[in-house]
Structures are given as structure tokens and as C-alpha cells.
Design a protein around this nucleic acid. Structure first.
Lengths: 222, 222
DNA sequence: GACATTTCCGTACCGCGGGTACAGTTGGAG
DNA sequence: CTCCAACTGTACCCGCGGTACGGAAATGTC
């Protein structure tokens, strides 16, 4: 009964590693089933087609991403009550996390699938969109909390600033992959952090009571 | 004699349109040759394999991109002698350009190929990297010129800020594709513009002679 | 324990697309 | 007319996604 569950899980793990390493198109089912120790029929018992595999893979990946992000922002919130500082700390931690991955970030599955969209059906694309919007919404909530305390220095749309983080991460992954230098992703996140800091950090005198301390140039936990 | 050249050109044009519309993996040679009015053998006379097609496509795409970028920065430089203003104008024009494309940006071929790298050989990947680095170097040169006049407000690595534009564009394209909203790319470029503006625009009193005019919130030709 | 049912996986095959082999055609130079 | 070179068409191979179908092992029912 639950033997099938284990097999299905094994397929997903093997497929995920392969997709992140080589891209979805370059991942052949034959290769996956060989690695997983089953046959084609076994695969197609668990997944109707490659679309369904992509859908499942994406679901897992997104869930894990959200978990990591939540945990990270949660930890940051514990380190500072001040929303801007907490956000900056979270970004620093995110940069560290991305930079510490051995061999660099495995690659963003969302982008990988985005560039293959014709291979997939609507459901996959929709899932993709919802995931992006969900992350953006989360970041936006943080930014709005920050903006309530620190009026932004430039008249920017906070939703755009929120989405910018997703752009930076996806773009940074591309830079890292193309140049073969994983650190670039981390640097980009830190650049975004500098942007947020400049945008909200008060120009010397507008600091609200109990707000930003004076040595705000590198307040994040190293 | 020159008939072959014309055929080769036709193949490239058809292939480019298809790749940008559907991605490289989803573009079949059979489809290309049908569209171009030749046969398979005709295709393989001009290109050793699909790798070589990708290589040529990428070369053309990169060359065109550089041309557009140069022309855009050149026009901007004609509109303002002040390097920061010229750069901001160029970014505004870039955002307008991206937003005006009917149906949105066709997709970044570099990113498209990046996520299929296993399908290609080293030469394609190398070309990819060089293109990115070339654009980054160009933008970096502008930023250094700017920084010589306007000391940056935050201690950032200008090379990272330069690369950030590439990240924003590639990431913005992904956002636009995933959400189906082409305007997002333009918004992201404008957000980057706000970042650059904040980074270099002097805080009210450090404006050099002949520098930034007071109504600097939207100085670009709209 | 016989029996059917569901779960799970194997074998054989199809169609499509990338790629090859090779034959044929066109056109210019001698 | 002949020969070479540039160019194109036909027939085929093979890997891969996907299907048809069948068999074994676990599970429920009496």
C-alpha cells in the first residue's frame, strides 16, 4: 500500500535533483526511472505525464521556499522589534544562505519552468504565478509595515519594490549560473538590501522615537 | 552563391522568432524548415547541429542588444551632459522601450539558453557569459563616471550595482512572463532607476555646479 | 484458503524530433 | 561536355515521451 508512496517520493527526489542540475527539458524520464530503480510503467503509474511531474515538483519546491522564507523572517523578527531592521537582517541572512550553498544555488525552478512554459499546461503556469504573487505579497506586507514608520525617501510603489526582490533573486541566479560564480547572487541581494536601507532609513533627523540606532551602516547579525 | 546566404538568414529569422515565442526546447527543426521552405538536409548543410543554431542565434541577439543599448545611451548622452542625468534618462527610455513592446518583451534569449545549458556545448555558455560581462562592463563605466562626480551615499561595489541592471531585466522578464503582465518589466527598471538616483543624487546640498536641476523627479523625455 | 480487486510494475510498441547517409540538382570554370 | 563545388531532397536510425496491455504482489471478502 505505502510502498507506492515511497517509490513516488523517490521519483520526485531524483527528478528534482536532475531538473535543478540540468533543467527540465534535459531531464529524461528514462534517466529518472533508471536512477530510481523502476521502469517506465512505474513512472506513468504515479504521474500521468511529465506535466504532472512538473506540477508536483513545483509544488514541493514552492512549499519549501515559503517555509525557508517564513523561518528566516521569523528569526529576523526575533532579533529586532524594529520592522526595518528586522527586514534588513532577514535580507542579510538570505544573502548568507544563498552564498553558503555549496556550488551555488541549485537554480530557481520557477524560472526554469517559466522558460519552458510551452511544455506545460495551464495548471503549472498558474501555480507558478500564484507562488510568485504569494512571495511578493509577503514581502509587500513587511514593506508596508516599514513604510508606516519610515516614510520612503522616493515616491515608489511598494508592490514594485517587493517584486524587485523576486527579480533580484531570479536574475541573480541567472548571473551566478552564467558566470559560474555563486557569490553574485549574494551580492545582488545585499545590493537590494542597500536599496531598501536607503529608501527607508531616515536622513539623519527624521528618526522616530525608539527607532533606528545611529550606527545603522551594518546593524545586521553577521 | 549568395542564395545560400539568404537561406541561412531565413532560417535564423524563423528560428529566432520561434525560440523567443516558445523557447529553444520547444522549437523543432522540422517546424523551422517548414516555415523557411527548405528541407532537413538544407538545414544541416547550414548548421552542423542545433548547438550551432543556438550559437548563431545568441550571437545575433547579443549584437542587436548591444546595438540598442549603445544607441539608447548615446541618445541619452545627447540629452544631458551630466552623467547621472544621462544615465537616468537612458533608464527611463529603456523602461519605455520595454513597456512599449506589443505583447511584452519576447523573452531574454540569454536566460532562455541559460536554463537549457545542458543542451548546449561550452562555446554557447562562454558566449553567454561574455555577453553578460560586456553589458555589465558598459554599465559599470557609466556608473564610475557618475561616481566620480557624485560620491555614492552608501558604500556599494559599483560592479554589483552595474550587474544589478542585468538581474533586474532578466528577473523582470520572468515576472512579466509568469504573471502575463508586460508592464512589470518596465516598473522594475524604473525601480532600479530610483535606486541609482537615490544612491548618487546628493542629499540637497552637495550638488556640483551645473548639476542636478531641482525638479529631478521626472527629468527624462517622457 | 479460494477469489476478486486494487496497487504496483514490466514488456512491447508507437510517433515525433534530432541527426546521418547518401543520392541528386544547379551553376559556373575549363 | 565535363568536372567540381555549392546546395537540396529522400530515406533511414535512434532516443525519448507516451500508450496498451499484461502480470505479480498486497489487500479485502467469504
Amino acid at each position: 500500500m505505502r510502498k507506492g508512496e515511497a517509490t513516488r517520493e523517490r521519483i520526485l527526489e531524483v527528478a528534482e535533483a536532475s531538473v535543478l542540475a540540468k533543467g527540465f527539458g534535459a531531464t529524461s524520464i528514462e534517466e529518472v526511472i533508471t536512477e530510481a530503480g523502476i521502469t517506465k510503467s512505474g513512472f506513468f503509474y504515479h504521474f500521468r505525464d511529465k506535466n504532472e511531474l512538473a506540477h508536483e515538483l513545483l509544488r514541493r519546491y514552492i512549499a519549501e521556499d515559503h517555509r525557508i522564507l517564513d523561518e528566516l523572517f521569523g528569526r529576523a523578527a526575533n532579533l529586532s522589534d524594529e520592522p526595518l531592521q528586522a527586514f534588513l537582517i532577514a535580507l542579510k541572512m538570505l544573502a548568507d544562505l544563498m552564498g553558503d550553498l555549496p556550488g551555488g544555488h541549485p537554480g530557481c525552478m520557477i524560472a526554469s519552468i517559466c522558460y519552458q512554459e510551452r511544455l506545460f499546461d495551464r495548471r503549472v503556469v498558474t501555480l507558478n504565478r500564484e507562488a510568485i504573487e504569494s512571495v511578493n505579497a509577503r514581502v509587500l506586507a513587511h514593506l508596508e509595515t516599514i513604510a508606516a514608520v519610515h516614510p520612503p525617501r522616493e515616491p515608489v510603489d511598494l508592490a514594485v519594490v517587493a517584486e524587485m526582490l523576486s527579480c533580484i533573486i531570479d536574475g541573480g541566479i541567472i548571473m551566478a549560473k552564467v558566470t559560474g560564480d555563486p557569490a553574485r547572487l549574494a551580492y545582488q541581494i545585499l545590493a537590494y538590501r542597500a536599496f531598501v536601507k536607503m529608501l527607508f532609513a531616515a536622513p539623519a533627523r527624521d528618526i522616530p522615537p525608539g527607532g533606528v540606532p545611529s550606527r545603522q551602516s551594518s546593524p545586521a547579525a553577521g
